[in-house]
Amino acid sequence: MSACKRVQQWATFARTWHIFDCKWQDPYQSAGVIKKYLMGMHKPIYHPLNDCGDVVVCINSREIALRGEDWRRRAYFHHTGYPGGASWTLAWELHNKDPTMIIRKAVYRAMQGNLQRRHTMERLFIYPGEDIPEDVLQNVTNQIRQLRLVPTRLDHIPEEEVKNYPKVMDYPEDYILK
């Protein structure tokens, strides 16, 4: 094998580290994307028996956004195994206890339940904030695109821009300002 081909071989089977910013992202929608990178399904050489999955680092998992009333409607089930050991934890309660748990469970459920799943999950790193260890950060070479736009708050938009923004609604002629 020539030197050039050897390097190509290394590059093909090397693990790439991807970073994903969970800020204002739906964990259940982004789980599908994260799973794809974790299992290596974005590669043309993908095969279930081929160990070609990548590493994904999720940051800002405390800032995830759930849709509508999901924070109080979604329940996470756990059973201790003893009689009467069932418990249902609401999504906001779980997020209070561990801000990384919702995204981890979402990715775990997005994958098929086979023997490989637990090993694939080992390649997922989740951090609640932006501070991640230096040795993790220096491996990262790629960023996964966010699925949803991060919304801007009205008080964070500069006043000049608010003032010069086109106007859609005009007051009626006899309106009394308040």
Partner: peptide
């Protein structure tokens, strides 16, 4: 409680 965390909405609803 649940009002503390980020929420997005779907305009279709």
């Amino acid at each position: 409680d649940y009002k503390k965390f980020n929420t997005y909405f779907d305009e279709k609803t």
